[in-house]
Amino acid sequence: MLSTLRAAAYGTVVFGLSACGSIVDRGPEIGAPISSQDLIVVGRLAHQSAEPPDLDSGDLLGHGWFFADFIIRKIEVGDIPKGTVRVRYFGHTYLRDDVNFRFHLRPTGEGDYFVCRPLDSAGYDCD
């Protein structure tokens, strides 16, 4: 009985620790068509900042453009060296900087990238 409880506790700890390395998937389905200039990458956000949008002043939810460094850890689609790129996204608040994200990125033409919105979500529409 005691060994069964130890095994269950060990399994819970191992499962809990492995869940810490999970990825928040905000990218398209694997194999979904994307523009040839777009990227699908996994990484973390750092050094975030924000600015208000040029929208209706009656926006009660407080939308805004957010800027961050995105530290690329894995490249799924696209041609870019691993490293850090500047990204911008549209939303209500900062995204977490303590988890890995899977993002669909599109070049802005100004040297940084838009984070494309997931389906049925607010943000920059890359479709």
Rank of each mutant, 00 (worst) to 15 (best):
L5K: 09
L5E: 03
R6K: 13
R6M: 01
A7D: 13
A8Y: 01
A8F: 08
Y10S: 14
Y10H: 12
G11I: 00
A19W: 00
S22D: 03
V24H: 03
D25L: 09
D25G: 09
R26F: 09
P28V: 15
E29K: 15
E29N: 13
I30H: 14
I30L: 13
G31F: 00
A32V: 06
A32S: 15
I34P: 02
I34L: 12
V41K: 07
V42Q: 13
V42L: 09
G43P: 07
A46N: 11
H47I: 09
E51H: 11
S57G: 04
S57D: 09
L60S: 15
L61P: 00
F66G: 04
F66T: 01
A68H: 06
A68I: 07
I72Q: 08
K82R: 14
T84A: 09
V85T: 10
R86W: 08
R88P: 02
R88S: 10
Y89I: 03
F90A: 06
H92Y: 12
L95V: 14
L95G: 04
R96D: 07
D97C: 08
V99F: 06
V99L: 03
F101K: 02
F101I: 08
T108V: 10
E110N: 15
G111Y: 01
D112Y: 03
D112L: 02
D112C: 03
D112K: 06
R117P: 01
P118Q: 11
S121G: 01
Y124F: 15
Y124D: 06
D125F: 12
D127K: 15
